[in-house]
Design a protein around this nucleic acid. Structure first.
Lengths: 340, 340
DNA sequence: ATCTTTTAATTAAACATTTTAAGGACGCTC
DNA sequence: GAGCGTCCTTAAAATGTTTAATTAAAAGAT
């Protein structure tokens, strides 16, 4: 490895002070155009590499933004991340990504690491059971935090997410409109704000249509394709013989449809199924999935913008910002057809 | 925000030197047990946050490892990343993740950023068309690089990936064994080493069975579910009326099966389809997908270990390390049944 | 010519840690 | 009580930037 090139190397070889070099490289108006060009040229020639940690030691700005979500492999978060990435890229910030898999411990470790690295800010979808103090840790040390996808009780940090209650009621109403009366709700948990909101949306829609809410029709479970697939058996053996299912998300819905098909029934005609999120997969599943667009990209984009604005000094309003979901009707739902 | 707590704050409040504090916090044998405990206690009480950038400025070790792949939303890379993450977690390294979306430009920017942050090393699946000099940039600046999933012509960096040629020939042979003679190959590109290897494996298997290789049966395309779905139309209208398809990966295979089903045929009996990678999705697709296990988790784990070993001083052998794929037979393939 | 203003470049301190060489205190031995 | 080793602690230098304050030089105004 060649000798380390630093500001002073450039300065010396040019017979000039390091201050000038520093200013020139950052296009400061304090240094003459000709000098600047000469310096930049020399930097390139020497293969100079800017040392951000030295700089950030001085400026206490690292250009690093942390992002933690439940699981980056989940396409739902994937779409949010993609939006955040493209927004941050534009402003020359580097982002550090982590899963917390709903472990409060892992999440705290991440926040600490980020603080140690001098992170400028953090965007997170808090783990189930996150104590508000953990978020305060970030704020207390001058690292602003923004929440996405999930809100956190007891915290008034700026939060961007879809209007889950409204979204699920859209799906439920759609099924009710098709004549379904026995509608199950598959997947998810009641331990997150999202979970409670979604269940509430389902309950509200049923009540409004004067359909009795049967707790036996709620099948909680993993929010994955696998989870939906495994729920199929339970679903098909329910004594209430539901004719439709509102699923937690598209993955669960696709898994459920596959499970239903595996059992010899035809999803979309024998059983109506709705998803949630409108992932790319939804439009090409078999049958194409009726689902609810939940604005992931929008959520990610807004959250990133909010953080950047905050870093730039303007103080965004705290509190929860809801994105309005929209219905996407495809072939996985159809008018009721009683199960024997 | 409270006053910043640093080593010297702890030292002062305890009437002691910063050097002792520094040593104590890192469990140096140079400081007495009692003093050490007292110092650690005080650090906790004050809410001290270790400043890694100051430390790394001195030590030139940041604890940061970069990882770049084509697309983290692709479950294939997702599984590799998961393995890398769990391996790095164990050794208290932070990892910075990025997609390059096969843009050499974006990839180079990432490497530069990583160098600026003082990254200790980088694991990458190089973008199509990566000039070997770009990798050299990392090595030249003392940042070791390891390749995963794809190899790079003209570079002898340590590389970990599956044996693609062998893997695809497994799948092709399986179909040939079921009596298929007209077998298409769907998805992918010839621009990566992986692409060329996979096509070669397919060609080799056909040749060995004395089946003529028909270039018309090769349908390249995006390596996504969408890509497979869209290829279905083209596939079904081929004049050669293929009875089976070897797909680039599971996503393409699932997309293709959905496309076939959409056209009214039954994947798995009318048309046999094989995938590649053995993603979680494969076992619960409809029908369950016959595929090739490609050892993603193993690849990720080995690559991470190799990097850590290298950082610890031991020099791993350069060159390509291949993981042997294995066949996973499920319901998407069956004995030939001629298409009308 | 001289004074003022503008422009350009420099000096030196600051950022928070690690580490090496050196110092001090203490107890032990002869 | 001098000498010596051990154990603990310290002072100071080093890491590579940024930036406020300053100086030097050039240009403009009178």
């Amino acid at each position: 490895m060649a000798q380390k090139i630093k500001l002073s190397t450039i300065a010396e070889t040019l017979g000039i002070s390091t201050a000038t070099v520093s200013l020139a490289l950052r296009d400061s108006p304090l240094v003459a155009g000709a000098t600047r060009d000469k310096i930049k040229e020399q930097a390139r020639a020497l293969g100079y590499i800017y040392n951000r940690r030295a700089a950030s030691l001085r400026t206490s700005r690292s250009g690093i933004i942390g992002v933690v979500v439940h699981d980056i492999m989940n396409p739902f978060y994937g779409e949010i991340l993609k939006a955040i990435e493209s927004e941050l890229d534009r402003s020359r910030h580097t982002f550090i990504l982590s899963n917390h898999y709903d472990s409060v411990e892992k999440q705290r470790t991440f926040i600490e690491t980020l603080l140690q690295l001098g992170g400028d800010g953090v965007i997170m979808s808090p783990a189930i059971g996150t104590p508000p103090e953990d978020m305060q840790l970030a704020e207390d040390n001058g690292m602003p935090a923004i929440l996405v996808a999930r809100s956190l009780d007891g915290s008034d940090l700026p939060t961007y997410r879809g209007d889950d209650s409204y979204g699920i009621s859209l799906a439920t109403n759609h099924l009710i409109g098709l004549g379904h009366r026995s509608i199950a709700m598959i997947g998810g948990t009641d331990q997150t704000s999202t979970g409670r909101d979604r269940y509430q949306g389902y309950v509200n829609a049923l009540r409004k249509a004067e359909i009795e809410v049967d707790p036996g029709l709620r099948i909680p479970g993993p929010r994955s394709m696998q989870g939906g697939f495994e729920a199929a058996v339970h679903f098909l053996s329910l004594p209430q013989k539901p004719t439709a299912a509102v699923c937690w998300n598209d993955l669960v819905a696709i898994g459920l449809m596959n499970g239903i098909a595996r059992a010899g029934l035809v999803p979309g005609s024998d059983i109506s199924v709705t998803g949630y999120d409108d992932l790319e997969e939804a439009s090409i599943s078999m049958p194409a999935l009726t689902t609810v667009w939940n604005g992931q990209a929008e959520v990610g984009r807004l959250a990133a913008r909010a953080l950047l604005d905050r870093l730039a000094g303007s103080h965004e309003p705290d509190g929860i910002h809801l994105i309005k979901p929209e219905m996407r009707i495809r072939q996985s739902t159809s008018p009721i057809r009683p199960r024997s």
